[in-house]
Simulated scan of single mutants.
Amino acid sequence: MEKLGAVKGLVPTADALRFLTALMDARKEEVRSRVELAKIEAARATAISQIRARADLYRQVFDRIFDERREFIEKHFEIIARGMASNDESLILNGLNGLGKIVATSPFANLASIAEVLEGDKEIEF
């Protein structure tokens, strides 16, 4: 208060009070802004974490889908190889037919149902 009295002659008291009030209001706004920024940052961090988790889930699902296709393709090539080794035409044809069916179908043919499962709340086990 002594310092306020010292500037009394230089600055009118009403102006000094308005200035201090404006300064306090600015400080309150700064604190509110910092709180709001902290909330936004927390929401951003949560969203990024959820996006990363979802991306990892998608990667695991698609890795598994393509692993299964690879396994089926390898099995059919084994059948074809056995048929060729034993000169068994029906075994070769069965292997080729199975291989053709796998290759002809897209792993994304039932993408809508895959997306439904991925976007659902159910836990997915591998």
Rank of each mutant, 00 (worst) to 15 (best):
V103K: 00
T46G: 02
K3E: 09
I102M: 06
N110E: 12
E71I: 08
L57S: 04
V7E: 15
R64M: 08
I48H: 12
F108W: 14
E123R: 09
F66M: 07
E74K: 08
D63K: 10
A45G: 04
M24I: 10
N87D: 06
I124M: 12
I51K: 07
E125S: 13
I102F: 03
L111G: 03
I80H: 00
R44P: 00
E2D: 15
I92S: 00
F19R: 03
K101A: 14
I124N: 10
I80P: 00
A112D: 11
A85H: 03
D56K: 11
L23F: 15
I80W: 04
N110M: 04
K28V: 06
R18F: 03
F72R: 01
R59I: 05
S90Y: 01
N110I: 04
E68K: 13
F108V: 12
I114V: 12
E29N: 13
A47S: 15
G83H: 00
E125P: 00
R34A: 02
S86K: 00
A115M: 10
I40A: 03
M1E: 10
Q60A: 13
E41H: 10
V117W: 00
L23R: 07
L93M: 08
L17G: 02
D15A: 04
F62L: 11
E30Y: 06
R34F: 08
A53Y: 09
E68D: 14
I80A: 05
I51Q: 13
E119T: 06
P107N: 06
K122Q: 15
I114H: 14
L20Q: 15
